[in-house]
Amino acid sequence: MFRPNGECLTTVPVKESADMVQKVIDFPFQVAEAYSMSINQRELPPEFDGKFSSVVILGMGGSGVAGDFVRVLLRNSRIPVHTCKNSRPPAFVNRDTLVIAITYSGKTQETLEALNASLNSEAKCVVITASRELGSLCEEKKIPWIFTPWNGYSRASFGYILVPVLGILNRIGLFPTLESDISEAIMVLNEIREECGPNVTLHKNPARLLALALADALPVTYGEYNFTDVVALRWKQQLNENAKVHCYYDIFPELLHNEIEAWDAGTGHAEQGEHPVLMFLRDSMHERDNHFEQRIEATKYLAERNGAKVFELWTKGKSELARLLSLTYMADFVSIYLAASRGINPEVTDNIDYIKNQKAVSIESKDV
């Protein structure tokens, strides 16, 4: 899965937050628990019969990227899946649209505003939340809702957020392989935990080695359109929130028409005081199907010629869900190890909390 190019440093300061580390370690269990709960989800009302013209998933942050994962997993579905990371849902939302609103805390301003607008458009809405207060309000408004366990931080609850969405879509016939995909994903995640957990020594731990390479560097993630691009976004988010570092990402093949010029040999990043570390999030099957392989190798050559350190991270597994989650789990470990190397507490998100506290929104629209 992990193929390092170049040398890495040799030590990681042990200052990780024990609580966050444990939540990362428990991710395979979280996925299994979320699937078990999805099997026992309450039945949706009769009008949720699967005869929808489109699906729209509302959510911000970790909830929003869960929607992106679903959009990629169902990119060949007979019904288009869209994501909305804004307070206004798409104009096409109507009574034939299934809207899944994810707000883990139950207080996400943009998601609640978009939910209100969707209800006013007579869409069929389902809410996923860890907030029993919001759940009670949904009961009062006769809005179907699904409870997901509270895990302290939404970014450490990706399984609790993603799997219930897949459970809903499985029930209406849009994701029929859920059981087998989850089974394989759990097996793959357990393997990665054995490779990357905090008890694994440094030189045998690919996540620690990568975190060390990212120390005092500019992290850059490159994903592949309509597949690992959503994981690249997740990497950015985890490095931002846990390690408190800037990170940016781009997407093949679009980056070959613009970003690639930043790797011109005459304008090296070293001269600009930058030390980029590139992480190529690769999937052999997707690359072969989309003829990406040769162009990715050429991009790697140009970046290395320009002085960048390049790491290739490969998916593991057969199902698309397992392959995407394999690289996602790696991001969790790397981000907490990078936080440790910087002496950062990955649990604290003061700036996000400050913004969230500026305004509270409730469900005010009419009943469905």
Score class of each variant (00 low, 15 high):
1 M>G: 13
4 P>G: 11
6 G>K: 07
9 L>Y: 00
13 P>T: 14
15 K>S: 15
18 A>T: 08
18 A>W: 00
19 D>I: 13
22 Q>S: 13
27 F>P: 01
28 P>M: 06
36 S>A: 14
45 P>E: 13
48 F>E: 11
48 F>P: 07
49 D>C: 08
63 S>I: 06
63 S>A: 15
80 P>T: 10
82 H>C: 04
91 A>P: 00
92 F>H: 12
94 N>H: 02
95 R>Y: 11
98 L>Q: 08
108 T>G: 08
112 L>W: 04
119 L>I: 08
125 C>P: 03
127 V>E: 02
142 K>E: 15
145 W>I: 12
153 Y>G: 00
154 S>K: 02
156 A>F: 09
161 I>R: 00
167 G>A: 09
174 L>A: 10
182 I>D: 03
182 I>W: 02
185 A>N: 02
185 A>P: 03
191 E>C: 06
194 E>N: 14
210 L>D: 02
235 W>E: 12
236 K>D: 14
239 L>M: 12
244 K>H: 15
247 C>Y: 01
250 D>F: 04
253 P>W: 01
255 L>E: 07
257 H>L: 10
263 W>T: 05
269 H>K: 00
281 L>R: 01
287 E>W: 01
290 N>R: 09
298 A>I: 03
299 T>I: 03
299 T>G: 13
302 L>F: 09
303 A>W: 01
306 N>G: 12
310 V>L: 06
336 I>Y: 07
341 S>W: 00
344 I>G: 06
346 P>F: 10
353 D>L: 08
353 D>E: 15
359 K>Q: 12
363 I>C: 07
364 E>Y: 01
367 D>S: 14
